[in-house]
């Protein structure tokens, strides 16, 4: 999946499921949208469905450090690259 495709999917999820209003790529997820660790866990479960594989505990713990949508996309690209090896 390309970065643009990932971005489109993630933005759709954030707006539809997490009630984000007008999200920008470099918004602070917590401060600007109230996105916390519980949201992150829910988002990760949706990402697992998109990718069709389960994330490891280590990968999930790394996701807890994500602060922006750009970070999410970077994180997903790394995951994809790691699985593609």
């Amino acid at each position: 999946m390309t970065r643009d495709e990932l971005q489109e999917k993630i933005l759709t999820i954030l707006v539809q499921d997490f009630e984000f209003k007008d999200p920008k790529l470099d918004d602070n997820l917590r401060d600007d949208h109230g996105f916390d660790s519980i949201d992150a866990i829910e988002l990760l479960s949706k990402i697992e469905i998109i990718f069709g594989f389960s994330l490891t505990r280590e990968e999930k713990e790394k996701a807890m450090e994500i602060r922006t949508i750009t970070d999410i996309l970077d994180y997903l690209e790394k995951i994809q690259q790691g699985r593609g090896k």
Binding site: S37, I38, I41, R57, K60, E61, M64
Partner: peptide, 8 residues
Amino acid sequence: AGLMLMQM
């Protein structure tokens, strides 16, 4: 963090 993740 790991404990919270595991329980969730």
